[in-house]
Design a protein around this nucleic acid. Structure first.
Lengths: 275, 275
DNA sequence: GTATGTGAAATGATTCACAGCG
DNA sequence: CGCTGTGAATCATTTCACATAC
């Protein structure tokens, strides 16, 4: 539980970029095949490294960086080993070149233009979210279907009508879009974005999008996150009740073990009950 | 890529509720041990089932539900099999009892009270997010450190000062909190929430929280999501370039194979280059 | 006949534990 | 001597494929 869950967790598997010509010839040193799980952690390492750099550090041990990023050090070392070697044995990692390498891998050298569709409640907040700007992205366009919102300025950007998507996505060379529309509109808007040339979508609408293979979709569903926590709350209270009942059962179990009526090592069994 | 990524993805492992007395005696039929990966998908199944019910369905096949939830049918069947049997061979699943069972497991029978801390840009939007209310949660309290915001009404709820956390969390019996504070304040606020009795936190601040074992933390970092997409964009363009170069190399490779200078089955190797 | 439920196999991710480098 | 980098072992998850029940 100390190892914090980070948005998308289960279900993904596999190595990024499997069968391509470079698989035949060995992957490029400047663009290694990374396990998807590793990719998902790199941004967290990057954030931690920036923080360390700001607080005056030049190097950091795997132990130290792991602590700052909320993972264990073995995992961190394995992850970083996929990027090539940026550490010095007996010392640790040089922060600056490591930051550079992670930013390069994540494609953050150039600031990426992002379109945001749906400036309702949530979309409006996302349009103003400072974290996007400070961590490599530029909101290059805002869209909404509602004509009464078109023209509104948010953070200095004018909201345009979704009919302008094809034109603007092309002229601004936008490849990433954030979808914050109502659920009912999401699929149609996503189709338009993809038709216009968008190849990655961050979807906040609570629907599963049906899109071509080559489009990357990540989904953030705020209610889902709470429901997962709710499960754990439910479990904690159920276990609490269990535990209480188990205390009573403990005596029974001990007697049963003594009679040899329960399988397994009596010591281990009792140990577990006690724990 | 068709299999959509859902927030938290990698890093978590293990079965929920491992060593407890009930592990010795076998887990309770009404509260099975579920793989964490399964738990993370249940909310998605639930959403899909509600949608199906609203559109007039009584039953659904594993294939149909899997499609609606964005997973494959084998995974869906395995997941549902952990809940006990709610399907009929040759027919499919009865939607109504299945909805009931998933809601029960997720602890959504009773509407859970949630506290939200930090009513800035993002927090304000979250406080108004209709999805929380419609999917099992009630925002029971809003807090902020900024005294000029205290008293402000958002969606009919007054913002209170974070100093009131202990009192309100107790009186409202709140166990889940949403953290939407600036990064710098998050750890201190989280400590206060936990001290007041909160045992699950959904953290939107870009920091790793350090909290006791028994507190569940999920993290949603919006910039991280975009950075993961950015990686895939970077990879796609790198592969594009690779592919172009590989076409040129193709001729070379074919010659090399003909000369017997490359290992492996020539047919397979050429097949991969062609693909 | 048809679609679920599930062992078994395959794949992927994490952790261990230590060789080897600085 | 300390800490990285990494094979080997373990653990979790996904997928396959089919017996089973309706």
């Amino acid at each position: 539980m100390s190892q914090q869950r980070t948005g998308h967790e289960a279900g993904i598997t596999g190595r990024v970029g499997a069968v391509t010509p470079s698989a035949v010839l060995g992957s490029q040193p400047d663009f290694p095949d990374l396990p998807e799980a590793t990719v998902a952690r790199l941004p967290e390492y990057l954030r931690a490294l920036h923080h360390l750099a700001e607080t005056g550090h030049d190097t950091v041990s795997s132990e130290g960086l792991a602590l700052a990023a909320g993972v264990n050090s073995a995992k961190l070392r394995k992850d970083l080993s996929h990027l090539g070697s940026y550490g010095t044995r007996g010392v640790g990692y040089d922060i600056e070149p490591l930051v550079g390498q992670i930013e390069y891998i994540l494609g953050l050298n150039k600031r990426r233009a992002v379109a945001l569709v749906g400036v309702g409640n949530l979309g409006h907040a996302l349009a103003g979210y400072a974290g996007f700007a400070s961590r490599g992205f530029r909101i290059a366009a805002l869209f909404d279907a509602d004509l009464t919102r078109v023209g509104e300025l948010i953070n200095g950007i004018a909201v345009r009508h979704i009919g302008d998507i094809p034109e603007v996505v092309k002229s601004e060379a936008i490849s990433i879009a954030v979808l914050a529309t109502p659920a009912g509109a999401a699929q149609a808007v996503a189709d338009q974005l993809v038709a216009a040339g968008v190849t990655s979508i961050l979807n906040f609408a609570p629907v599963v999008l049906n899109l071509p293979e080559q489009v990357d979709v990540r989904k953030v569903d705020l209610a889902v996150e709470l429901q997962i926590l709710s499960f754990h709350e439910h479990r904690k209270s159920a276990r609490g009740a269990e535990q209480a009942k188990a205390v009573a059962r403990g005596a029974e179990l001990a007697k049963a073990v003594a009679r040899g009526a329960v399988n397994g090592s009596p010591a281990a069994t009792l140990g577990e009950v006690a724990a």
